[in-house]
Simulated assay, not measured.
Amino acid sequence: MEYMSQEGFDKIAEELHHLETVELPQVKDAISEARDKGDLSENFEYHAAKREQGRLMGRARFLQKILENARVIDKSLLKSDCVGLLSKVRITNIGAGKSMDYTIVSPHEANLREGKISIKSPIAEALLGKKAGDEVQVKVPAGMIKLRIESVSL
């Protein structure tokens, strides 16, 4: 079981729907069209379409599994004073003096460009359960960094 936001759940469900209603039918049409061209043993279009069909079906199964095991979190039940799943956190790298804003999300929703980090990332794991004003040390690939939590909200 994996907890996630309603937004993340909807995004995955939308991707699955698009795969099933748009992309897979297009690939099936491509396979049918390539099959009509004759000899399949040397038909590159046929083999490429079959590979794409396999990739899309694998992705669809993966997304279905995520949705089957997902539990959407009711934000009203979450604490806003300490860091947890779906918390918005402003942290400062004490050594570099640089502030960053992150939202702690499930691994399937993580997207650094959007400021969403996985709850399983080293930084998020170090922040869990901490409050504004707390300082933590985190081991990251670049070494140890010291972070101060400036604010926590939902």
Rank of each mutant, 00 (worst) to 15 (best):
M1P: 14
E2C: 13
S5P: 07
Q6L: 15
E7N: 08
K11I: 01
K11A: 09
K11Y: 03
I12H: 09
I12S: 07
I12P: 12
I12V: 15
A13V: 13
A13I: 14
E14R: 15
E15Q: 12
E15I: 10
L16R: 14
L16D: 11
H18W: 15
E20H: 10
T21V: 13
T21C: 06
P25V: 05
Q26Y: 01
D29A: 08
A30I: 01
I31D: 03
E33I: 04
A34F: 06
A34G: 00
R35Q: 03
R35E: 03
K37D: 11
K37N: 10
G38S: 01
D39E: 11
D39N: 07
L40V: 13
E42R: 13
E42C: 01
E45T: 01
A48D: 15
A49T: 07
K50G: 04
R51F: 07
E52G: 05
Q53M: 11
Q53P: 01
L56G: 02
M57P: 04
G58Y: 08
R59V: 03
A60D: 14
A60F: 06
A60M: 08
R61L: 02
R61G: 03
Q64H: 13
I66D: 01
E68N: 02
A70N: 07
R71W: 07
R71C: 04
V72G: 10
I73W: 03
D74Y: 12
K75R: 15
K75E: 09
K75I: 08
L78Y: 03
K79L: 05
K79F: 02
K79Y: 03
S80T: 14
S80I: 04
D81C: 05
D81K: 09
V83A: 14
L85I: 15
L85G: 13
L86G: 09
S87R: 11
K88C: 10
K88I: 14
V89I: 13
V89D: 11
R90Q: 11
N93Q: 04
N93C: 03
N93I: 00
G95P: 09
G97Y: 14
G97V: 10
G97E: 04
K98T: 08
K98I: 14
K98F: 00
K98A: 10
K98C: 00
S99M: 12
D101N: 07
D101T: 00
Y102E: 00
T103P: 08
T103M: 11
V105A: 02
V105D: 00
P107T: 00
H108E: 13
E109P: 06
A110G: 03
E114R: 05
G115N: 12
K116I: 06
I117M: 09
S118L: 10
S118C: 07
S118T: 02
S118P: 02
I119T: 03
K120F: 00
K120S: 13
S121K: 01
P122Q: 04
P122G: 06
A126S: 09
A126M: 05
L127W: 00
L127R: 14
A132C: 10
D134H: 11
V136C: 06
V136S: 10
Q137S: 14
Q137E: 14
V138S: 09
V138Q: 08
K139S: 12
K139M: 10
V140A: 15
P141W: 09
A142C: 06
G143Q: 07
G143W: 08
M144V: 08
K146V: 03
R148V: 02
I149M: 05
I149K: 03
E150Y: 04
E150D: 11
S151L: 08
V152F: 03
S153E: 06
L154E: 02
